[in-house]
Design a protein around this nucleic acid. Structure first.
Length: 720
DNA sequence: ACTTCGGACTCAGAAAATTCCGA
DNA sequence: CTCGGAATTTTCTGAGTCCGAAG
């Protein structure tokens, strides 16, 4: 199959049928009967003044809690308990029954003040320690019994600013819709997206489309003649104004926003409070793909409640729609999934989901299962490697290609490489590698150069086993550059093969396995005598090795060059001063006691001179001028003991400076976060921290501590 | 039996926000 | 101690994987 035919896969239809028939039976029970309203909104309709005032005092999350209690009570009184074989035997089901009892008074949470108290920090799931429970019902397919939440919050409606777009130098009247689109473009004026023809074309097509029934349609014909600079300037001004708000006021605004959002931040899953992850509907804007995405610049339109499907408990109150005059698209009760809401992306046709936060039980259990699966691979890995090495010599094309591909996936941690459509960026993984992506350097080195996920370049020159080298050469023989290397191999074929070797195994598990096992091995060799800082640096270095293995890269930080120069200058200054100090010491020593002090010259950066009337900008400019100015001479008189102390401290400072510089240079394009968050079993790190007496907070930031709460009690003896 | 497609989930780097750190 | 820049952390949303059902 040629690449061209493969990539010409038809674009999936964006609209799906609205028919209920598509849903599994269990989800079809969207009851049309009037629901007893349970929300805070209806509660405020209550005639009971007591209820009213109590509600007023409570935070919204408490209100959600209260709702759940009512929901439970309702479960008990109005709903026939449905048979649920999966959960019936489980602890969870038992709990549910228990919850039908009236809620004891002490369960009521005291009202929180402003900042949340320390006791509820670091928990996304109300302290539910699922990892203390048996694993019995975890994989049953049914993910929850009751689910209650407030769905999503929408971005504010567009407010026209009336700043004109100039066309050929003249202001053009635009409808609010078109002005908004023009403003999306103006917001990108300072980025290099606007230089890209695809971006320009896609944007202009959509912009023109928005103009179609207005007079501007006859005026605006060419993007080159559009001048967005005034809108851009307006946006910049707004940005500055926002920046200039006094800190106290900013804080107040932030708090008000937090209050407004509060009710969206939590959901109740089987009566447990859990944090919601992305409860904000994505605002409209221009689609920015990664790499050379064919759809970059297209208008990603505004999502309305009608576009959104809500997944809630069958007996839970349907979350109130926050936009007046609108209503939710669909309400479903799908218990075999963990999402709360979803909508279709208008650009890609893909699904967008609202999930619980990373620290939730859903996510935690699934993370735990992922690492347990990867650990299980340890027991099979030798056999699997033997198997695919055998496969290199296979007669059949498919097994031979599969075995060769497996080597790359295992050894180089390549992704499996599903097929991609014509309407996506052209990126590849193992199975979709093309002849143009590989070069052969005898005797047995291959050079891989391709764009992987997110259009990140994978460029690696690596010596491989002779059989692999020969096989790859064979697979490329008589093929054009654009043809697939593994033309007989499919992702499904490869994963089916892996399933036959280990239950549940797929290609991605190898990335998890190799990343974790690599870290485990590397940090087991931590130098014994290192101090805390050295240990952390060491850990980060090993984390870096994993990041390199997984090809986790980041863009070169914008200021990298100038920052390095700055550090370099500092090194030179420090080195010079050290030399001068040593010269002084020599002089005193050689004098045999005839002198006890020397004049030393230190070259220092010029000190900035500020005057009272300078504003922030002027001060910054002065600082900059001083830093760039030639070094100034400073004379110092020093005695021997002083010099000795100085030599010691300056040497240390110089060494640290040089080391910092090296680290900065080494890390400039490596992204450590991705592996830490997704690939490295946190238990490896927890065990290491315990054994080496490194506070875990030095390695895991707050959100990671929450995400990995399940791993915190790992013993120091844990090995992956 | 094969391919295609949609769905649900993990994983990805950039950008924004926040915190840290050194002069 | 304070200020500003750098470093780190969090948020955002796009890009993968993989599975199962439909065609």
């Amino acid at each position: 199959m040629t690449t061209a035919t493969k990539r010409a896969r038809p674009i999936p239809a964006i609209e799906s049928s609205d028919e209920d028939d598509e849903l599994p039976l269990i989800n079809r029970r969207v009851s049309k009967k009037p629901r007893v309203s349970l929300s805070s909104a209806s509660a405020s309709n209550s005639t009971s003044a007591q209820t009213k005032s109590r509600l007023k005092q409570r935070s919204s999350s408490d209100r959600v809690l209260a709702d759940a209690r009512r929901q439970r009570r309702q479960n008990g009184t109005t709903t026939v308990v449905r048979p649920n074989p999966a959960a019936a035997k489980g602890r969870r089901a038992k709990k549910e029954e228990a919850k039908l009892e009236p809620i004891p008074v002490e369960e009521k949470k005291p009202k929180r003040e402003g900042q949340s108290s320390s006791s509820d920090q670091g928990k996304d799931n109300g302290g539910y320690r699922w990892w203390d429970e048996g694993e019995g019902e975890r994989n049953s397919g049914i993910k929850w019994t009751t689910l209650l939440h407030n769905a999503v919050i929408f971005p504010p409606e567009y407010e026209p600013h009336g700043i004109p777009l100039l066309y050929n130098g003249k202001a053009v009247e635009l409808s609010a819709e078109s002005e908004e689109i023009a403003t999306f473009y103006a917001a990108k004026l300072a980025t290099d997206y606007v230089q890209k023809p695809t971006f320009q074309r896609n944007f202009f097509d959509d912009f023109r489309h928005s103009l179609r029934s207005t007079s501007a349609h006859r005026i605006i014909k060419k993007l080159e003649l559009c001048d967005f600079s005034r809108i851009h300037a307006h946006l910049e001004k707004k940005k500055q104004e926002k920046k200039d708000i006094p800190a106290a006021e900013k804080k107040k605004l932030r708090e008000e926003e937090a209050v407004r959002c509060k009710k969206y931040t939590v959901a109740l899953v089987d009566g447990r409070e859990e944090k919601v992850g992305n409860f904000r509907v994505e605002p409209p804007g221009l689609f920015l793909g990664r790499g050379e995405h064919p759809k970059m610049g297209k208008v990603k339109s505004r999502i309305y409640p009608e576009d959104i499907t809500i997944n809630v408990g069958h007996d839970a109150e349907i979350p109130p729609c926050p936009l007046e005059g609108h209503k939710w698209g669909k309400i479903i009760h799908k218990r075999d999934v963990t999402w709360l809401c979803f909508w279709k992306d208008t650009i890609t046709g893909g699904s967008k989901y609202v999930w619980l936060a990373a620290g939730s039980a859903f996510k935690g259990m699934s993370d735990h299962a992922k690492f347990e699966k990867a650990r299980r691979l340890s027991q099979y890995i030798e056999q699997i490697r033997r198997d695919y090495r055998q496969g290199w010599k296979a007669k059949g094309k498919e097994p031979k290609q599969r075995a060769t591909a497996m080597y790359l996936i295992d050894k180089l941690a390549l992704r499996v490489g599903n097929e991609k459509g014509e309407d996506e960026a052209d990126t590849v993984g193992c199975c979709s590698l093309r002849v143009e992506h590989i070069k052969f350097v005898p005797p047995r080195t291959i050079e891989l150069d391709f764009l992987g996920k997110d259009s990140i370049r994978y460029f690696n020159s690596v010596q491989v086993e002779k059989e692999v080298y020969e096989n790859l050469k064979l697979f490329c023989r008589n093929k054009k550059p654009g043809e697939d290397i593994f033309h007989r191999l499919t992702v499904t074929g490869l994963n089916d093969y892996l399933k036959s070797l280990m239950d549940g195994l797929s290609a991605k598990v190898f990335r998890t396995y190799n990343a974790s096992v690599t870290l485990d091995n590397l940090i087991s060799n931590t130098p014994a005598r290192s101090d805390l800082l050295e240990k952390i640096v060491f850990y980060n270095q090993q984390n870096k090795e994993v990041a390199i293995l997984c090809n986790h890269q980041r863009a070169l930080p914008k200021a990298h060059g100038s920052q390095m120069e700055k550090m370099d200058k500092k090194v030179v200054d420090t080195q010079q001063w050290l030399t001068e100090l040593k010269r002084g010491r020599n002089k005193i020593n050689k004098s045999k006691g005839s002198i006890d002090s020397v004049d030393l010259i230190q070259w220092m950066p010029e000190k900035p001179v500020f005057t009272e009337d300078m504003d922030d900008k002027e001060r910054a400019a002065e600082r900059k001028r001083a830093a760039a100015a030639p070094r100034v001479k400073t004379a110092r008189v020093k005695k021997l003991p002083q010099i000795e102390t100085a030599i010691k401290s300056v040497s240390e400072r110089l060494a640290k400076l040089k080391a910092d510089m090296q680290v900065k240079e080494d890390m400039k394009t490596v992204a450590l976060g991705t592996s830490k968050i997704n690939y490295l079993d946190p238990r490896i790190t927890v065990a290491w921290c315990k054994k080496r007496e490194v506070p875990i907070e030095r390695i895991f930031a707050k959100t990671l501590l929450v995400k990995f709460a399940w791993a915190m009690e790992t013993s120091e003896d844990f090995r992956f």
